[in-house]
């Protein structure tokens, strides 16, 4: 009797393990937090240096169309207009998402609603394989297949937004598909039963009930796909043409934020204006991925079923 009373009031091995485990998780959290904060701090300070140390106006940076950080224009101002890259980055991202989403949804519906068995047996591994292919391989295929194809079909060099879009389309397809599959699978079975029992056809059930319920998840999938496309550097760099020019259409060579970063970062000296300008591009990328993240959270919150 007293033994138990004593046990109740004193810490045991279990409570010590509890403290130990909790301490470890706190340490890990602190480390990861520190990592994130230092990355943010580093990129922000470097990225802002263009405007604080080199006194380039933010507006000129965002709206200028001449990118030549090593040289001054005739008024003696540095030529760092990032608009062409911003435009190109957004164009390839949005176009890739627009092209990929219907395909991804089709595949996802096939895998979940139409042929779940074949879907999980055959398509699932295929999609996982697509995710695993290194981006340089995608870029190489783009360079040796898509670019010549565009050159022969439409003329020009073949490099440009169209080639970038097509490569990114294949790259974001598995991301959007697998996330959509997850969200469609998460739609409870009884929604389908209820709809079918009311006399709805299979297609009506899929379109009006399943897809509606899965919409927040699908939007999240699309945004994840977009953020992947926005951040992809290597594959895009190989097919986009890497000329910092305002794109005049889908077929003219251009350059994205990421491709300019990968081509430029090795050729500049730390602390100089050309280097700082590249960090400013990185800052834009960081802010954009932040925006994508916030969008995903926002949609997740808005879309979840209210109790």
């Amino acid at each position: 009797m007293d033994e138990i009373k004593k046990d109740l009031q004193n810490p045991s091995k279990a409570t010590h393990q509890d403290y130990f485990g909790r301490t470890i998780t706190y340490i890990c959290i602190a480390f990861v937090g520190l990592l994130v904060i230092s990355i943010l701090y580093f990129i922000t300070t470097r990225g802002i240096a263009t405007f604080t140390t080199n006194h380039v106006s933010l507006w000129k940076f965002l709206s200028g169309t001449n990118w030549n950080p090593g040289l001054l224009d005739k008024h003696g101002n540095p030529q760092i207009g990032a608009l062409p890259m911003i435009v190109t980055s957004f164009s390839v991202t949005i176009l890739a998402a627009v092209v990929a989403t219907p395909f991804a949804l089709g595949v996802a519906l096939f895998m979940t609603e139409i042929a779940p068995e074949k879907g999980t047996k055959i398509l699932q591994p295929v999609i996982e394989l697509l995710v695993g292919i290194p981006s340089v391989v995608y870029g190489f295929i783009g360079l040796s297949v898509i670019v010549p194809l565009i050159r022969h079909t439409f003329g020009g060099t073949g490099f440009g937004i169209l080639a970038g879009t097509l490569v990114l389309f294949v790259m974001v397809l598995p991301t959007i598909t697998s996330l959509s599959v997850d969200s469609i699978k998460a739609v409870p079975m009884f929604y389908r039963s209820a709809s079918l029992a009311l006399g709805a056809t299979r297609w009506q059930t899929i379109y009006k009930v399943v897809l509606r319920a899965a919409t927040p998840g699908i939007l999240t999938a699309v945004i994840f796909g977009m953020s992947r496309a926005f951040g992809e550097a290597l594959a895009v760099q190989m097919v986009i043409g890497n000329a910092v020019l305002m794109p005049h259409g889908l077929l003219t060579p251009s350059s994205t934020l990421t491709s300019q970063l990968t081509t430029g970062i090795g050729n500049t000296t730390m602390g100089t204006l050309p280097n700082n300008a590249l960090w400013s591009l990185a800052l834009i990328l960081l802010l954009m991925s932040l925006v994508f993240n916030i969008l995903v959270r926002f949609i997740g919150k808005k879309g979840s079923l209210k109790k």
Binding site: I4, K5, D7, L8, Q9, N10, P11, S12, A14, T15, D18
Partner: peptide
């Protein structure tokens, strides 16, 4: 023993 107090070993 008041088992609702803070210093109680809940596992026990």
């Amino acid at each position: 023993t008041d088992i609702n107090s803070q210093n109680i070993n809940v596992y026990e």
